Amino acid sequence: MKRNRLPRRARQTPDSELLTRLATRLSQSSNRVEDAWWEARLAAHIDHLLANDGEETLVAVLDQLYNGGSRAYDELADMVESCAETRRAEGNSGLDAVMIAVPLLAWSRFQIPSGGIPAAQLEAVRVHLQAHVLAADAKLGLSDILYSPDQLPQSYVATAQLAEKLAKAAIHGRNLKIDPAQLSETMNFLSDTRYLLGAVAAPRGTALFRWQEDDGDPAESFRQWAQQGGDALRPLLPACAIEFLPVLAYHAAVRDADRASRPWSLRSAVAFLQTVLNQPAAELRAVVAPFHDRQLEEYRIGFTQRGSSDVVHGVVWPLLENEDENNDAPTQIEAALREAGVSSVLMLDQRFPLEFCDDCGAPLYPNPEGEPVHAELPEDQAEAAPRHLH
């Protein structure tokens, strides 16, 4: 998940000064023994801030280190994520727990479901996760909600609070009941990501995941999960095309899903347009252009029919993590479009402003003449489209 970091002067506090010093010393360490020494102290301070609503301090120091181009930023970012999603055993006989995410990509002409999961289906998912993803002695706790991206925790502190609840559920081998009314409203997109969140717990020093065991293999674990676990999850998403992604620790899973969702959105858009326009992909043209604010923020892809300049649909390809103007997004976008069957791809290289429609707030997409315009399906097909489009 990309963090937009704008230059600002952060007020220094004892907490922020200590956080900066520990992260900097860790980044300067020259051996694993010293790494462990600094990591333990940095983790203890981050745990203190997470437990005491120290989000502002964490984000301010991350901003400062990021803007300074320091290696300490990577060390601190990794440690903050680890502390937010992990619960460590109090003693050698206790259980360590890690918050996990079960991500999947979906697209549909209808609304992609989210919300509560019936108990029988949640139990079926639990059985397959235990069989194909978790180590033999690991315990599992699952939330009873299928989350949309809008409903995921929006801060490190919120993530840590949810991880704490899920860890307790895992230690007792039960599921966590979530009140859907307390979650944000899910927007309706043509293609989107859904997440099942949980936690896995195991005695300190033992395996959490199947692939940590002597005969385990990550690729085989994922294949079995996608096949067997997919059968348990598909009934939750009727009338949807689905692609399953590997089950990982929370932040890693969300990052992977963010990356995978970009080519998925393009493939979904092409499949959607073939359906509503009743035309093969070869009759579509894609116009790709970079859109800037203070810096390059994203690429936008406008789709037209061959021989027309009217943009009938659009997709946003956001930059993620450390991607910048030197990224290879145009190559990735063109490859994904051609794989989906679109042979006419026009790449524009002029800078476009990050503009949105004044009336509805939708992004404006490039047309073949190099103008940012509103995407509009022909009137007789417009009713087939969801209101919001990725």
Score class of each variant (00 low, 15 high):
P280R: 10
P280F: 06
L296I: 14
V311W: 09
E298K: 15
T275L: 15
E323L: 06
A336N: 06
R262A: 02
W264I: 04
E297T: 15
G307A: 12
S308Y: 15
D358V: 07
T275S: 13
E297Y: 07
V270W: 14
L354K: 10
W317H: 05
Q295P: 13
F356Q: 09
C357F: 06
A336V: 05
P318M: 00
L319T: 05
D328S: 15
E323K: 12
E355V: 06
F352C: 01
P330L: 02
P263R: 01
P318H: 04
G341N: 02
L364V: 01
D293A: 13
Q350R: 05
D256N: 12
E334F: 04
V312K: 03
H313W: 08
P363Q: 08
V288D: 04
D258N: 08
R259A: 09
D328E: 11
A335G: 15
V345F: 02
R300W: 12
W317Q: 01
R262L: 05
L346M: 10
P366R: 11
S265D: 04
I333L: 08
R306C: 02
S265E: 13
E325T: 11
A336M: 02
A336E: 03
A335I: 00
R351S: 06
L320H: 04
R262P: 03
L337C: 05
L273V: 06
Y365H: 06
D258M: 07
N326S: 12
H292P: 07
L296N: 03
N326C: 09
V311C: 03
R306H: 13
A281W: 02
P290Y: 14
S309G: 11
S268C: 03
L337R: 00
D359I: 12
L319K: 10
F356R: 09
F352Y: 03
G314P: 02
V345I: 04
Q332T: 12
G361N: 02
E325W: 11
H313V: 15
